[in-house]
Amino acid sequence: MKFTIDGLEISAEQDDTIMDASRRAEVFIPGLCYSSSTEPTHSCRLCMVEVEEKNSLRLVAACAYKVKENLKVVTTTERVSKVRKTILKHLYSMAPENPAIMELMNLYKIEKAPIIKEKKSHCILCGRCVKACEKLGISAISTVNRGVTKEINTPYGKPAEYCMGCGSCSEVCPTKCITIKDNEEGRTIWHKHFEWARCEKCGVIVTTKEHFANSNPNNTPVVCPVCKRRYMTDVFADTFGE
């Protein structure tokens, strides 16, 4: 399937959204909640573009709109840049001076709006962390409350029973606002403390004990990738001769 973004022809697969195809073709459309590895949440609305339908232009979210044959997408109209500007200003007020948002503000040359209220966290409530946790089959976190008090947290704000401290939520967070404290002893995330699983051979930190136990068969020896490779080399050498 072929379609165009600002006159540039791009190919797309069946069921691709505009965002899927454009990211694959390395045509940049901004988007903070979009990630090819998690389910879409369509929450940041930063990827608004216009598509030509029945000879008129319509505003759609690129991460939600499925590509059709010969679709015409435009991202440079005044309407798009106006909407993008408004959304970025809102996001800025949610996460003032956040590097990810500042980068986009600078890119589109948008002036900073005055900060009305100091925020505790730079969370923009995109829900990417929730989807990532869900995808891993853990679902330790979710959105709590609603309206201005809405936040991402564990049930009752207590250590989540199933959290394994893998840090995927923090990894996918676009504003990097999930507090994760790592030191020599272990990791603290979502009010819970985890001990490190260290490599039996060289003592390097592999991951948390819970995460290792969850992602490996029972009684797997904890070995870091480097030692594993070295160990496997020995096995191969033994099997096939030097």
Binding site: S139, S142, T143, V144, T154, E161
Partner: peptide, 12 residues
């Protein structure tokens, strides 16, 4: 279904 989902609903 995960407890976090139910909790999310109960607080919403």
């Amino acid at each position: 279904i995960p407890i976090s989902d139910i909790f999310s609903m109960a607080t919403y």
